[in-house]
Design a protein around this nucleic acid. Structure first.
Lengths: 233, 233
DNA sequence: CCGGCCAAGTGGCTCAGCCACTAGGCCACC
DNA sequence: GGTGGCCTAGTGGCTGAGCCACTTGGCCGG
């Protein structure tokens, strides 16, 4: 799409207020705990209505950057009004090689924890995912759904909501690489073997072996993917 | 802190509107692209002012869940109004054991990548951090600042902005555990030795050894921290 | 069939104002 | 001297009415 024909972005007023607010905080050298000017004063000096100032402050509030105390003023929570990198990261397009690196880091640990912590019921979930994958492949499919279930079950068995949340962040990208990988001829059956190895290590309660098996698996996926990967930007 | 003495949380009105809105979308089965009721109608049926509805919509707007078109209505961008897990995760208080698990997963991989990718300049940065830490400890301090710089330098040398962003998410918690750990008698010098081992592996360009050294180090920190940890909830 | 026009609907924003709550000073009382 | 109550100015929370700008869809004249 040409630059000229791009839809005009009419910045909402509260967004402009937001910018001015951020600039003010840095210029005035305000720090965490300091009080912002009163809403009425801000509205007056910025030349906008109090409602618009209010909307901007609400935004800062939900971002956890500011705390408004009814009757007591509005206070800075951090030393800046800039958003955390991870929040903007969710919107940003993530490059695939990095995603695969992150996946290896996370899933290896998840497999290790799963081997230590899995309940019998969770082990059974993993087993069922494996069986599902085997049926898929036997039926001529590539086993992508079984693959997804398997990793989801392992993640659940690890009992770490933090790591699980990190995984969710890159879930979409992982799905893409999974599909791509399983399209390779002969890949589904080899993948099944690798998953079986992971399962057996988790079943045996052997964290090191589980981590190693998972690492091997993820690296295989990464390698296959990289062969067919064409950088876009 | 006792339950009774906890500060009263008075939910802002726009937060309640937010909840009702989320509930409405799921109950009405709205999907991406569907239009929300007009602000005036929402205000009337919820029994609040239009300004409050507006504040809630602004929140949804900055979260990228909704798109308001001037004169054309407000439209859903996703199938739900629920925020992504990582976004709410930033606000939520993270439990320490999970943070340490995540740290091991991330930093082990970071050390490995750093050993592969570090430039000479970055290696020098790591070396300087190590020297700084040594000076700190020689001067009677616990070396917490050098520790921080060391891990920051390794993270930089790994050249993975995704993993780096994950690290930033748990940066605060790591800082706490770092301080706690280095308070232990005799810990600073042992910590220095572990960091030196990591440095040497990275300098030698040995990914496996770097990963192993980092894993050993992080696990030591985790162990020390767990000894002094008193669960609150 | 087409193009322009119009009107209803909708979001963007303002203004004026009331209420609830906080903070800080003052004062009476112990 | 200190403690607790009270008052008041300042501040955020919220409302209602209203105007403007923009979109949409249909109507009408060509």
């Amino acid at each position: 799409m040409s630059e000229a024909l791009r839809p005009m972005v009419k910045s909402r007023l509260y967004e402009q207020v937001l910018e001015r607010l951020r600039a003010y905080v840095t210029e005035a050298g305000l720090e965490a705990g300091d009080r912002l000017p009163a809403e009425r004063d801000l509205a007056a000096s910025l030349g906008v209505s109090r409602a618009s100032v209010k909307q901007a402050i609400v935004v800062l509030e939900v971002q956890g950057l500011v705390e408004a105390r009814h009757g007591g003023g509005t206070y800075l929570v951090k030393d800046t009004l800039d958003v955390e990198p991870v929040e903007q990261l969710v919107e940003r397009r993530k490059r695939l090689p990095e995603v695969l690196e992150a996946r290896e880091a996370l899933e290896t640990k998840l497999a290790e924890l799963a081997a230590e912590r899995r309940t019998d019921a969770e082990l059974d979930d993993i087993r069922q995912a494996l069986d599902f994958m085997r049926d898929e492949i036997a039926g001529g499919e590539n086993g992508v759904e079984g693959d997804r279930r398997f990793h989801a079950a392992v993640t659940a068995a690890a009992h770490s909501s933090l790591l699980a949340d990190f995984m969710k962040t890159i879930a979409r990208q992982i799905t893409e690489s999974r599909t791509e990988s399983l399209r390779q001829p002969g890949r589904p059956s080899r993948s099944l073997a690798q998953h079986t190895a992971i399962y057996e290590a988790i079943a045996a309660g052997d964290p090191k072996k589980a981590a190693a098996a998972m690492r091997r698996h993820v690296r295989t996926v990464a390698k296959v993917r990289l062969l067919t990967w064409v950088p876009e930007d």
